[in-house]
Simulated assay, not measured.
Amino acid sequence: MADHARMRLSRVALVPVVFLAVCVLPFAAAAPWAAVVLVVPLLAAVWVLRVGVDVDDEGITTHTLGPSRRVAWTELAGIRVGRGARLRLVTTAGSELQLPVLRARDLPRLAALSGGRIDAP
């Protein structure tokens, strides 16, 4: 298994974010208080760049706009496919943790990165 693998959104997802920023710029320039709307494209850009999953020899780390969460391989009970084909980690404690930006179609790649710890369908 690779030492560390990152699964993120494509940077091409920043194109609509830039388009959004250009579209809200005239509104933001109309009044001093309207500049607050520039926060929306900024948050969208941060989301595209940050959100994802890291897989390494110790476990899986999920990154969201909030804090990152790590699940060690010893704490992993399995993977559940939820609504919209979203993947969720199921821990040995019975809790679930959503894997951001990953869908059921990404399960074979995740299984390969896990070094056999996750079974591919």
Rank of each mutant, 00 (worst) to 15 (best):
R11T: 12
T91W: 04
V37I: 15
E75M: 05
R6D: 13
A120K: 13
C23P: 00
V51G: 01
A21Y: 05
S68F: 06
R88L: 12
D57G: 09
V90L: 15
T92N: 09
A28W: 06
G66Q: 08
S10R: 05
V101M: 03
T92A: 15
F27N: 01
P100H: 13
E58F: 03
A44V: 10
L14Y: 08
A72L: 03
R69M: 11
P16T: 11
P26R: 09
L42E: 00
I118D: 01
H63T: 05
P67W: 11
R86S: 15
A31M: 07
R105M: 10
A13P: 00
L14Q: 07
E96L: 06
V101F: 05
S10A: 10
D56W: 02
H63L: 10
M7D: 13
G52K: 04
R86V: 08
L99G: 06
V53Y: 10
G52C: 11
D56I: 01
A45I: 08
P121F: 11
L87E: 08
L38S: 07
P41S: 03
V71C: 08
A85W: 10
P32W: 04
V53C: 08
V24C: 07
T92K: 06
R50Y: 06
A112V: 00
A93S: 15
A44H: 09
A45Q: 07
L110I: 11
L43D: 03
D56A: 04
R88P: 00
P67I: 04
P100C: 08
H63F: 15
R69I: 11
W73T: 10
S114M: 02
A5W: 10
V24E: 05
R80I: 13
L97M: 14
A30T: 05
A112G: 09
A29E: 06
R117F: 07
L65K: 07
R70S: 14
G59V: 04
G78M: 02
A112I: 00
V48Q: 01
G116R: 03
R105T: 12
V36C: 02
G116K: 03
P121H: 07
W73E: 10
V71N: 03
L42H: 00
V24P: 02
A104L: 14
L25F: 04
V17L: 04
M1K: 02
H63M: 07
V22H: 01
Q98G: 12
W33G: 13
A29P: 01
L99R: 06
P108W: 09
A29I: 05
R105K: 15
R69C: 06
L87P: 02
R8T: 09
A13F: 06
A85N: 14
A35N: 02
R80Q: 15
W73L: 07
V101W: 05
L49C: 12
A72N: 02
L99T: 06
S10T: 11
L65I: 14
W47D: 06
A85E: 15
A85R: 15
D119Y: 05
V90Y: 02
F27P: 01
R117K: 13
V51M: 03
A35C: 08
A13M: 05
A93Y: 09
C23Y: 02
A21D: 00
T61P: 00
S114A: 06
R83W: 13
V12E: 05
V46I: 08
